[in-house]
Each structure stands twice: as C-alpha cells, then as structure tokens.
Amino acid sequence: MFFHFIIAGIFLIFSGIAYSDYILKNPVTFDLIVMGLMIFAWFLLYIVAKQIRSNGHDQMNDLENLFLEIIES
C-alpha cells in the first residue's frame, strides 16, 4: 500500500514540476516520461497485488480449515 502512496507522490511532484517548466517555457519531456513511468508502475503494482492475492487464496482456506478444526476440538 505504501508503494501506491510513493508512486502517487512522485507523480504529483513531477506534475507540479512539469507545470512550472511549461509556464517557464522549459522542456517538459523528462517530466512527462517520469509521469508515464509512474502510471505504468501503478498498473504493474495492481497486477502484482492481484496475482499475490490469488496465490494466497488457497493458503487462506487451509488456515481457515485448520482454525475451524482447532475450534471444534
């Protein structure tokens, strides 16, 4: 979850820098590249988190069954 906040923070910082560079008539190419990479990283984090959640689903069911077995005994 913290990675999402870090990526969002970097995106916001570079969007502010890109805006000020645009107003000052400086090139904004690097800023836009970093912002695009942050969007890509955000989607990548989403895909990785979804994969980890699906991998852990069976383990969660095993733990729940073990918990119910201990409660019943």
Rank of each mutant, 00 (worst) to 15 (best):
G36S: 14
E72D: 13
A41G: 01
L45M: 12
G16F: 02
K25T: 02
S20V: 09
L44W: 09
F14T: 00
L45D: 14
D62F: 09
V48L: 11
L68C: 03
S73Y: 12
I33H: 05
F11G: 02
G16R: 01
L37I: 14
Q59H: 07
A18T: 03
F43G: 07
F2T: 11
H57C: 02
D58I: 10
P27Q: 07
D62I: 13
Y46K: 13
Y46Q: 10
I70D: 13
D31F: 03
G9C: 02
L44P: 01
F67T: 14
V34S: 02
M1W: 04
I23A: 05
E64P: 02
I17P: 01
F40Y: 15
L32G: 10
F43V: 02
Q51P: 01
D62P: 01
L63Y: 12
P27I: 07
F67A: 14
L12G: 05
I52M: 07
I70H: 12
A18C: 07
Q59I: 10
I70K: 15
F30W: 13
F30P: 04
I47F: 15
L37W: 06
A49F: 06
N65K: 15
N61C: 08
L68S: 08
D62A: 12
E72L: 08
M35V: 06
Y46F: 10
M35Y: 04
K50G: 06
V34C: 02
L12I: 09
E72P: 00
E64R: 14
D21S: 09
V48S: 04
G9K: 02
H4P: 01
D31R: 06
I7W: 01
E69T: 12
V48Q: 06
E64H: 13
V28M: 06
V34E: 03
E64D: 11
V34M: 08
L32W: 12
